[in-house]
Nucleic acid binder design. Structure first.
Length: 608
DNA sequence: CTAGGGTTAG
C-alpha cells in the first residue's frame, strides 16, 4: 500500500493486478500504467525519477515503455540515460530490443536528435549486440530525416553486411531513405529495380520519392506500371500519385484517379481527401475541390482547411477563401502559420487590403503566431499589387526581419505594372548585385528597359547574361488531351501537326485583331522591328498550345493549359480575345495562380 | 518493437 502513495494516487490504484503478484511486479505495473497515461513532459520527468527511486531502471519492460513514451515528447535522452547511466549505477542488460526501442525514439524525434539514433547503432555494435531486422527500418528512417546521402550509402552497406538486404521492410525503407536524400533517380531506383518482391509500400515509396523530387511525370508513369504488375495501390499510393497529378495540373487524370478510388473502395483517409482537394484546386477545378471538402466523411484537419483556402486563393476567389477561413475559426479549428499564409495570399490576389491587414494583426494578437518571412512577403505583395508601392516600401522598412529577394522582386513587379520604372530599375540593379546568377532579376530589369524603350540598355542586360552564362528558363506550356500530356515550348516544331498549328496561330492572330487585339510588342527581348516582334510573340508556347487544342477539340470544349512561368502580358491579352472570338472557356495555370478567361474577360481582373 | 502519405508568400 505504501506504493500507491509514491505513485500519483488514482492512476496507480486503478492498475489491475493478478492475485498474488509480488511487490516488485506491482511497482512495474504501476510504472507501465503511469507511462501509458503520461501526457506531459513534466509528468515524464516525474516518472523518470520514480523509476530510479523504485529501482526499476534495469527492468526491460519499463525501459522499453519509457523509451517509447519519451519519443512523444522529443525526450528520448531521458531513456538513453537509463540505458547508458552517467553515474555508477549498473547498466541494464542491453539487447537488440532495447537498442531498437531507443533508436526508434531518436529516429522519431526532432532533427537535431536524430544523429543520436546513429550513435546508438555504433554503441550497439561496440557492445557486440548484433542488429536484427527491426533495427534497420528505424535507423534508415533517422537517416532519411537527416537527408545525408553518404550516410545512407554507409547504412546500405551495413544492411548488406548483416544480410537484411532481402527483407521487404528494410528494402522499402531503403528506397524511402534514398529518396529523402535526394537520390531517387539513381540509388533508390537501383534498390527498387533489384527488389525481388514489391508490395504497395515499395511502389508508394518510389512514386512518392519521384513526386517529391518534382519528377511528376515519372511518378505517374510508375503508377501505371504498378497497375500492370497487378499490385493493388492503397490510399498511401494514391496520395503520392494525386500530388504528382496536382503538380502536372492534369485534370483528366485527376478525375480518373478519383473514380479509381471510388471503384476500388480505397479508404478515404484525411490525407487522401486533402490530396484530392489539393489536386482539384491545382488542376483548375476548385469547385470540385470544395465538393470533396464539404463531403468529407472523416474529421477535417487544419491541412484540409488550408488546402481549400489556398485553392480558392489561387483562383482569385478571395472572398470565399476569407469566409472559409472565418468558418474554420468559428468551428474552433486553430489556424496555424500555414493557414495564415493561405488567407493572406487570398487577400493579396483579390486586392482585399483591409482584410489582409486585419488577418495579419489577428494572427499576432489573437493567435500569438509570430509572422515569418512568408507572411511579410504576402503583405508586401498585397500592398504592391494594390498600387500602394510606397506603403509597401514603408512596410519593408519597418519589418523586424531582413526582407528577402522574393519580397524585393514582388515590389519590382508592381513597379513595372504601375509604371514606377525608375524605382523598379534601382531595386533590380541592387537585386542583381546581391544575386548575380538569378535569371529573373535580369528579366525584370530587361522588361523595365523595354517599357522605357531603352533598347541599348536592354541589349546590355542581355549581353551580361550571355557573358555570365545565365540562361533564360524556356517557357513551356502543357496541355492534356484524351489522356495524353503534350508539352509546347516557344517556336516548337517537334509536333506532327506543327504546320497546322502555326497556320492556326496565324488565323487566331487575324481573328482577334479584328476584335481589337493589339500585340504587346514591348516585352519582346530583341530590338527588332515591330513585325518581327509580332512574329516572336506568335511563337509563344501558350499560343501554340491553344491553337493545338482549338484544332483538335469540338467547339465549346473548355481549354485548360498549364504554364511553367508567369503568363506574359501579350498572351494574357490575346487569350482574352481568343476566349471571346472562339467562344471557349480557357483556364490557364500560371507559375503563381489561375486565370479563367471567358467571353473576353479574365478572372484576375488584369492585375496579376 | 519494423516500411510508404496531405497544406506553405513570388
Amino acid at each position: 500500500m505504501e506504493l500507491t502513495k509514491l505513485c500519483w494516487g488514482a492512476t496507480a490504484l486503478e492498475v489491475q493486478l493478478p492475485a498474488g503478484t509480488t511487490k516488485r511486479r506491482v511497482a512495474e505495473q504501476a510504472c507501465l500504467s503511469l507511462l501509458t497515461s503520461c501526457e506531459t513532459l513534466l509528468r515524464l520527468t516525474q516518472i523518470h525519477a520514480l523509476i530510479l527511486k523504485l529501482g526499476l531502471h534495469r527492468n526491460p519492460l519499463v525501459l522499453t515503455k519509457f523509451a517509447a513514451t519519451s519519443s512523444h515528447f522529443d525526450a528520448a535522452h531521458y531513456a538513453a540515460s537509463f540505458i547508458f547511466p552517467d553515474d555508477d549505477r549498473p547498466a541494464p542488460h542491453r539487447d537488440a530490443f532495447l537498442f531498437n526501442t531507443l533508436i526508434r525514439a531518436f529516429a522519431h524525434s526532432a532533427a537535431h536528435s536524430k544523429p543520436r539514433a546513429l550513435r546508438l547503432y555504433s554503441a550497439m555494435l561496440r557492445h557486440d549486440v548484433p542488429p536484427n531486422k527491426f533495427t534497420f527500418p528505424f535507423l534508415l528512417k533517422a537517416c532519411a530525416g537527416l537527408a545525408d546521402l553518404p550516410l545512407a550509402k554507409t547504412l546500405h552497406s551495413s544492411v548488406v553486411k548483416f544480410g537484411f538486404d532481402r527483407d521487404l521492410h528494410v528494402r522499402n525503407t531503403m528506397i524511402h531513405m534514398y529518396c529523402c536524400c535526394g537520390d531517387a533517380a539513381e540509388s533508390a531506383q537501383k534498390v527498387f529495380d533489384g527488389s525481388p518482391r514489391r508490395d504497395s509500400v515499395t511502389w508508394s515509396a518510389i512514386i512518392g520519392g519521384y513526386a517529391r523530387a518534382g519528377n511528376s511525370a515519372r511518378a505517374v508513369a510508375l503508377f501505371r506500371e504498378m497497375q500492370v504488375t497487378g499490385v493493388c495501390p492503397d490510399e498511401v499510393t494514391m496520395v503520392s500519385v494525386l500530388s504528382a497529378c496536382a503538380d502536372l495540373g492534369a485534370l483528366e487524370l485527376g478525375m480518373w484517379l478519383e473514380s479509381y478510388v471510388e471503384r476500388k473502395s480505397i479508404t478515404k483517409s484525411v490525407e487522401l481527401c486533402n490530396a484530392l482537394i489539393d489536386m482539384f484546386a491545382k488542376c483548375g477545378d476548385v469547385d470540385r475541390a470544395m465538393k470533396v471538402f464539404r463531403e468529407m466523411e472523416v474529421m477535417r484537419t487544419i491541412v484540409s482547411w488550408t488546402s481549400v483556402i489556398v485553392g480558392l486563393a489561387m483562383h482569385g476567389r478571395g472572398l470565399e477563401a476569407v469566409s472559409v477561413f472565418d468558418e474554420m475559426v468559428e468551428q474552433g479549428v486553430e489556424p496555424d502559420d500555414v493557414a495564415f499564409i493561405g488567407v493572406l495570399s487570398a487577400c493579396s490576389h483579390s486586392g482585399l487590403v483591409d482584410k489582409g491587414r486585419y488577418y495579419f494583426n489577428t494572427m499576432q494578437n489573437r493567435f500569438c503566431i509570430l509572422p515569418k518571412i512568408e507572411h511579410y512577403g504576402c503583405m508586401v505583395d498585397m500592398l504592391s499589387r494594390a498600387g500602394l508601392v510606397n506603403e509597401a516600401l514603408e512596410f519593408v522598412q519597418a519589418m523586424p526581419i531582413e526582407p528577402n529577394q522574393v519580397i524585393w522582386r514582388s515590389i519590382v513587379t508592381a513597379c513595372h505594372a504601375r509604371g514606377e520604372l525608375k524605382l523598379g530599375e534601382t531595386i533590380s540593379e541592387e537585386l542583381i548585385r546581391r544575386e548575380p546568377m538569378h535569371e529573373s532579376n535580369y528579366v525584370m530589369l530587361s522588361n523595365i528597359y523595354a517599357k522605357l524603350l531603352r533598347w541599348e540598355k536592354k541589349t546590355k542586360v542581355r549581353e551580361i547574361m550571355d557573358v555570365k552564362g545565365i540562361r533564360k528558363i524556356p517557357g513551356s506550356t502543357m496541355i492534356e488531351m484524351n489522356g495524353e500530356i503534350y508539352e509546347f515550348v516557344a517556336g516548337d516544331k517537334s509536333h506532327d501537326q506543327y504546320k497546322e498549328i502555326y497556320g492556326m496561330v496565324e488565323e487566331m492572330g487575324r481573328e482577334i485583331k479584328r476584335e481589337g487585339y493589339v500585340p504587346t510588342t514591348s516585352k519582346v527581348l530583341l530590338d527588332i522591328d515591330e513585325e518581327d516582334k509580332e512574329d516572336a510573340l506568335y511563337r509563344h508556347s501558350e499560343k501554340l498550345a491553344i491553337a493545338f487544342v482549338l484544332l483538335n477539340t469540338p467547339p465549346g470544349t473548355p481549354i485548360r493549359i498549364v504554364k511553367n512561368l508567369r503568363v506574359c502580358e501579350d498572351c494574357h491579352s490575346a487569350t482574352k480575345f481568343i476566349s471571346k472570338v472562339y467562344n471557349r472557356e480557357i483556364v490557364v495555370r500560371d507559375r503563381n495562380r489561375f486565370h479563367h478567361f471567358n467571353n473576353g474577360l479574365c478572372s484576375c481582373g488584369d492585375f496579376w
